[in-house]
């Protein structure tokens, strides 16, 4: 590809017919990703999209990059092999709430703790769409579904809290149709290491409007878009998040005339893990939903450590197959020893 040729969203779209339900939030995410790729300077030939199983996992078929639609839950493991085999590739993992947190929970945990350099986009629609509507590990308690006709009784997992608990060094949230999503994607791409992005994605067929309490236009005041070095304000700046020192927990404070300082509103520092943990676990009653880059604190990546160790271990040793097979204590048989 000529370096001077400016790519567009179209260059990242395949000729394959997109097969999601009309109105699915996945379309919006696909568009946002295709639009963002040129801005990242991403090269299609150096980019690999890897997915597991689920509605969102069809994603790679629609990206004009290298792509691998794998098996349920295993995308992080496949991605680990791809990245270790060729660390120069840009690896994106596309997954969902069931794929990443139920059947593939183990791999999600380990790819995060190892800090493989990749972007993980978890499309959270709080439902199993592809299998026709069963409740998922992120479904709220009481969710009625074909497999839980009387309502689910188990408590849901919180994807971002799971990621932080697994040792993720980058945790962010976005909304499928939000105009801020490209910025979140850019921040994830810029982060060297495993970048975990939870995207609230509306399933129009099986779980429509489950996020409406904060995504609907009239509820936009419930969105807290975090920006580094800026106060945590929401509801048009009328409210903010402060720290209750007594209980060591967050609380909502009113802000009058923009004087957030005297209201004690916190300034966002994405390197503060304790704060990140509190932000992702804010209850949904009077609190807003924390969005944008919640935690961003880079650490050395897994594949670079592997490459370095391989290099160091191989240093000064010339590969020689004949010497290798001859290693160890050996003996020479000169001739037939029992000639008698």
């Amino acid at each position: 590809m000529n370096e001077l040729t400016k790519l567009t969203a179209k260059d990242f779209a395949t000729d394959q017919e997109v097969r999601w339900c009309p109105g699915c939030g996945d379309y919006a995410v696909l568009k946002a990703v295709q639009r963002t790729m040129p801005e990242l300077g991403a090269k299609p030939e150096n980019t690999v999209f890897i997915s597991g199983i689920g509605c969102s996992s069809r994603f790679p078929y629609y990206m004009e990059t290298y792509g691998f639609h794998t098996i349920h839950g295993r995308a992080p493991a496949i991605a680990t092999g791809v990245k270790l085999a060729n660390p120069d590739l840009d690896v994106w993992i596309i997954t969902g709430d069931g794929d990443a947190l139920s059947i593939g929970g183990n791999h999600t945990m380990h790819v995060l703790r190892r800090n493989l350099d990749c972007q993980i986009l978890l499309f959270n629609n709080e439902i199993y769409g592809l299998t026709k509507g069963q409740y998922s590990p992120t479904s709220r308690a009481g969710t009625r579904s074909p497999s839980t006709p009387y309502g689910s009784v188990d408590r849901p997992a919180n994807p971002c809290a799971f990621a932080l608990g697994s040792g993720a060094r980058f945790v962010a949230r976005g909304i499928d149709v939000s105009k801020h999503l490209p910025d979140v994607l850019k921040a994830a791409y810029a982060h060297k290491g495993a970048a975990f992005v939870e995207i609230y994605q509306n399933c129009i067929v099986y779980n429509d409007d489950v996020f409406a309490p904060f995504t609907a236009k009239e509820n936009a005041g419930k969105q807290l878009w975090l920006k580094t070095g800026e106060p945590m304000l929401f509801d048009g700046g009328a409210k903010g998040i402060a720290l209750d020192v007594e209980t060591l927990s967050l609380r909502v404070v009113d802000v009058t005339d923009g004087d957030w300082q005297s209201a004690g509103v916190l300034v966002h520092n994405p390197q503060n893990k304790a704060l990140a943990q509190m932000l992702v676990e804010m209850p949904s009653d009077i609190f807003p939903v924390a969005l944008g880059v919640i935690f961003d604190s880079p650490a050395p990546t897994f594949e670079s450590a592997v490459v370095e160790q391989n290099k160091a271990a191989a240093a000064g040793k010339a590969p020689n197959l004949q010497a290798l097979v001859s290693k160890g204590q050996s003996w020479q048989v000169e001739k037939e020893p029992r000639a008698e």
């Binding site: 690999v48 890897i50 691998f68 794998t70 098996i71 295993r74 992080p76 493991a77 496949i78 991605a79 680990t80 092999g81 791809v82 990245k83 270790l84 085999a85 060729n86 590739l89 183990n106 791999h107 945990m109 380990h110 592997v306 160790q309 391989n310 271990a313 191989a314 040793k317 010339a318 590969p319 197959l321 290798l324």
Partner: peptide, 28 residues
């Protein structure tokens, strides 16, 4: 390692083969 061997102790048997498949996809 000097024979271009990368070894990976995976988190489970499935990840062990899955990572190997990923590596084959990438040309190893």
């Amino acid at each position: 390692k000097e024979y271009d061997v990368t070894t990976f102790q995976a988190e489970d048997e499935i990840a062990a083969i899955a990572s190997a498949i990923g590596a084959s996809f990438a040309g190893s």
